[in-house]
């Protein structure tokens, strides 16, 4: 009895820094943000209560909000599919035992993730330049005249997905770790049964990997909701607002137009959308995912 009590005290003592941090740097801001979202607030003048006004303005009247939301959804839907397919493919190929030894490949796919964010943006501004850019120069070698990636509202988002793909080596590493947990014998049995590579992939690899896929997709989705620096630095949201993503518009409202209340309402809508998204993904996983 005494030991349980001592453990209770000790346990709480050890986690107490986290509890304090959680209350001060997370709980309070989340609640304060809810409060600010119901006000008009510009930092200088005291907050002015306006009920659900900010939410109604955003949802019913703000076209820019809708554009930012749709842009972000595009990145989530298209980006998730493209990046998941490519990274899993790379991981499956790298997981082959004859190739696994060639750890140099693993390194190659991983190191772009190490480029500091701001430098990443600078480098990609160069890569995507229409005339002097790396991408179009390489395309010209195979006779393709590359477009102005960031000048075209239809191509700017795909260009961003390319950039995100370049830096998704972390997902490859995570898939590889997941693949290594799949027992080799399953493949051997399947091979004996005459299953080809594709069938083995879709009947064994993908289902067994689904928790890892879920993890990576959730990580990517959260990343997209938060992605700010890329569009802030590279395009400032242009052309024709095609790269105005949710977090950029939130930042603009908060720190360029000083609409802290409106921006807080955006933050809460973001929280709700992100939670819904993750709940849906978890639901899908529960329904269709593999269970041992």
């Amino acid at each position: 009895m005494l030991k349980a009590r001592r453990n209770q005290i000790n346990g709480l003592l050890f986690v107490s820094p986290w509890i304090v941090g959680f209350l001060v740097f997370i709980t309070y801001p989340v609640l304060a943000s809810l409060y600010y979202s119901l006000t008009k607030y510009d930092v200088i003048h005291p907050p002015e209560f306006r009920g659900l006004g900010n939410y109604l303005d955003l949802i019913l009247r703000d076209d820019v909000f809708r554009i930012a939301l749709l842009n972000t959804l595009y990145m989530i839907v298209v980006g998730t599919v493209v990046i998941t397919v490519v990274t899993i493919t790379i991981a499956i190929v790298l997981n082959n035992r004859q190739i696994r030894g060639l750890s140099v490949f693993r390194v190659v796919f991983f190191i772009p993730t190490l480029v500091p964010l701001v430098i990443l943006c600078i480098v990609w501004i160069w890569i995507l330049q229409p005339q002097t850019g790396l991408l179009n120069t390489c395309l010209s070698y195979v006779g393709i005249r590359g477009p102005g990636w960031l000048a075209d509202p239809r191509l700017a988002k795909p260009a961003f997905i390319m950039m995100f793909l370049w830096t998704s080596g972390g997902a490859v590493i995570i898939y590889l770790a997941g693949l290594q947990d799949i027992p080799e014998t399953l493949y051997e049995v399947a091979s004996i049964d005459g299953a080809g590579f594709l069938r083995r992939t879709f009947t064994i690899t993908v289902p067994l990997l689904s928790p890892v896929i879920l993890f990576n997709v959730v990580t990517y989705v959260i990343g997209i909701f938060q992605s700010f620096a890329e569009s802030f630095i590279i395009t400032s949201g242009g052309p024709d607002r095609s790269t105005l993503f949710y977090s950029l518009y939130l930042y603009q409202n908060a720190f360029q137009y000083f609409k802290m209340g409106l921006a807080s309402a955006m933050a809460w809508i973001l929280l709700i959308i992100a939670a819904l998204f993750i709940a849906i993904l978890l639901g899908l996983e529960r329904r269709f995912g593999y269970r041992q």
């Binding site: 309070y28 801001p29 989340v30 943000s33 930092v43 938060q226 908060a254 973001l270 992100a274």
Partner: peptide
Amino acid sequence: TIILPFQVVMIPLFIMFH
């Protein structure tokens, strides 16, 4: 809290720190 977007706490943190 790992998946809590920074944007949700950003504004109150800014106000609190000020």
